[in-house]
Simulated scan of single mutants.
Amino acid sequence: MADVDAAEIRAERADFMAEHLASYLESGGTRGHILDVTSVGGREITTHCLVRYRGRTSGRVYVKPLIYGNVGGEIVVVASKGGADTHPEWYLNIIAGQTVDVQIATQAFEATWHEPEGTERHNVWEYMCHLFPPYINYQRSTSRHIPLLMFSAVRPIDVFEPGDSHSP
């Protein structure tokens, strides 16, 4: 998918995503963890986490809501960017650092990350496509290999606050 087409999709959903993030943050995680995303081809019950990261050039802190899966106790997110031909900025920022902060519902933790490879990647990709079927078409629409990130908890931290981030 051309970046222009992906940008149009993101622009149409920008209000929804901003409202989702605000609800998740303002409620301390009691709202926003599970959403019905059938309107975009997903499932009625889809889990979302918050990922807090630092901009690699700006140094600013950002928080991004993302669909996630749990594979063997690790949290998995997909850097799909709706099938755009370029990686999402949040992914580039995360891989520039060693750790990332993650919030799932009302619990937050600092985490390390890795990108699965080989058979592990194939199995995790299949699982994530089961959780959110649009990932299949996102991959078909781009020549870019859509990355997966797997987060492992290191230590608990306080849940995120509404003032913790800048808008990306």
Rank of each mutant, 00 (worst) to 15 (best):
P133G: 01
P133V: 01
T119M: 10
Y68P: 05
A18W: 02
R56I: 11
R144A: 02
L25F: 11
A11E: 14
V4A: 15
T112A: 07
V124G: 05
D3F: 08
E8S: 11
F16V: 10
D101P: 02
Q107R: 15
M17F: 05
G59I: 05
K81S: 15
F109I: 08
H20R: 03
D5Q: 11
G59W: 07
M1Q: 10
F16K: 07
S141A: 15
I94V: 15
M150L: 14
L35I: 03
L35A: 03
E12K: 13
S141M: 12
V4W: 12
E26L: 01
Q139H: 02
Q139E: 12
P134A: 08
S165K: 07
I95F: 09
R60L: 15
S23G: 06
P147G: 03
Y135R: 12
P116L: 13
H122P: 00
V40C: 07
P133N: 09
V63Y: 08
I94L: 09
H48T: 11
V102K: 00
M150G: 00
Y91N: 05
E89A: 14
E161Y: 09
N137D: 10
A108S: 14
V78D: 02
E74L: 15
Y91S: 07
Q98V: 05
R121I: 01
N93L: 08
Y24A: 00
T57R: 13
R13L: 12
S80T: 09
A111W: 06
L35M: 07
E19A: 13
S165A: 14
G83K: 09
A11N: 11
D85K: 09
T112G: 10
V63K: 05
I67D: 03
P147H: 01
V78S: 10
A18S: 09
Y24P: 00
V124C: 01
N123A: 09
F132V: 04
H166T: 08
G41S: 15
Y53S: 01
S152Y: 00
D164P: 02
L25I: 07
P133M: 06
E89N: 10
D15M: 07
R54M: 13
V71T: 03
E74Q: 12
R52N: 14
N93A: 10
A105S: 15
Y91K: 10
G163V: 13
P88H: 06
R31I: 09
R31K: 14
I9T: 08
R56A: 15
A105H: 12
L149N: 02
Y24N: 03
V71Y: 05
E26C: 01
T38M: 03
G72D: 12
G55Q: 10
Y68D: 05
I34V: 15
V71I: 12
G59V: 14
S141C: 00
T142W: 03
T106R: 12
E161M: 13
P88Q: 09
G73T: 05
V159Y: 01
V37D: 07
